[in-house]
Write a protein that binds this DNA or RNA. Structure first.
Lengths: 217, 217
DNA sequence: TAGATTGTTAATCGATTAACAATC
DNA sequence: TAGATTGTTAATCGATTAACAATC
């Protein structure tokens, strides 16, 4: 009795899935074959109710009186997250951050495959990042016409992003992982995930300020 | 008539502040001196109600019939976010990502100052990242005793993080920006901000899968 | 003054938690 | 069977939106 297929799942739930996935992966590594929502809730510091509610948005993966089979649930979440396939990725802006991402081996392991990198800086063009050669940004458009690119990583200065984003969209890129400090305007058939590191560190400095405020009281 | 000082502000509100800050900065750059919640709401794609509610958690920054003074509001949010001071930062794990962060000039500009970097890889130790020399991880503890470190950037493999985290905490580091794929257990007087890039890209692949599912219907 | 727009209360909406019948 | 634990409904809580009196 899986739930209404057309029910729109809230982003709050979706954002929790990778964390479930990580914990289940850890359990799997430790050879644990079953887990109850109660035990998992203790490990993760969330309520068992939330875990069951979240999972039941996607299907009935548990068994009454038993709990969840770790391997099966792991595989289900993998599928839900779209991690049961490969994604071709390119990097736009192969500076330090772009190169760091290209060199990060975990992405490849999970099916995110870098197939190209682009930059406009002639000092960088021609060098390699990971196992790919950095091309001049002028080669981006022809490259997109020749290759299927699922995801573009945008790690360029914010003032360049609005020029690049339409080129990506017009040439069939459907996913943008946006590290540039700007909000992209993209059509409905393109999805954007922002990774705004500056905003993340600002949240941290807020928390630090709160901490000090409370200490003084 | 500023609000109850002791009211705990929800993380949802806090996470929106850096975005307000960014938009106000842009307005400032464009020489715009005043803005109403209505106009800002159109620019940002949120409701004017939400903007006013959010801001009023911290004080009454607007003027009826006029709106908000951009420069003043920008300065207020800067203060709220704790960006009116400097933070000494160190990097634990000076691999590609750590070095990329150290080289990123915007952090320095905003008051986040890297004063040290540590790694256990002898091939990396001794090299420079940004303008700091990478030290051996064994020098971390003495360094912490000699220098005030506000924030540690944790960009090391997950299995090393639980060893390093207590060293930081015991030596007075109060903020951890955690790029390692693990949840840190820290006492109440330490704040952690997670920047789990793998979880971010998984959210993107989920969105892509949703997109394709809808296309097929 | 009249128009604009805030600050704030009230209404709505959605997300989380609690409770428990179903059932393994 | 008895105990455990789910899936799911109902209750609660919190966050967002709407509305409007206050006031610049």
């Amino acid at each position: 009795m899986s739930k209404d297929e057309n029910e729109k799942i809230s982003l709050a739930v979706v954002k929790r899935l990778p964390r479930y996935y990580r914990y289940l992966g850890d359990l799997l590594e430790h050879g644990i074959t079953r887990i109850s929502s109660g035990d998992l809730s203790k490990k993760m510091g969330v309520t068992a109710s939330q875990i069951r509610q979240d999972l039941n948005k996607f299907g009935c993966f548990g068994q009454r009186g038993y709990g969840y089979n770790v391997e099966m649930l792991y595989a289900e979440i993998k599928k839900i997250l779209g991690l049961d396939r490969e994604y071709n990725m390119i990097i736009i802006g192969a500076g330090n951050l772009g190169q760091a991402l290209a060199n990060y081996p975990n992405f490849r392991k999970r099916g995110f495959k870098f197939i190209g990198a682009f930059d406009k800086n002639p000092d960088i063009v021609g060098k390699t990042a990971g196992d790919i050669v950095i091309m001049d940004i002028s080669e981006l458009e022809p490259f997109l016409k020749e290759n299927r690119v699922d995801i573009a990583v945008l790690s360029i200065p914010k003032y360049n992003a609005p020029k690049i984003s339409p080129i990506l969209v017009e040439n069939g890129v459907r996913g943008i992982w946006n590290f540039s400090h700007i909000d992209l305007n993209t059509p409905d058939n393109v999805v954007v995930e922002n990774a705004h590191l500056t905003e993340s560190v600002m949240t941290l400095s807020y928390k630090l300020s709160e901490l000090e405020k409370n200490n003084k009281e």
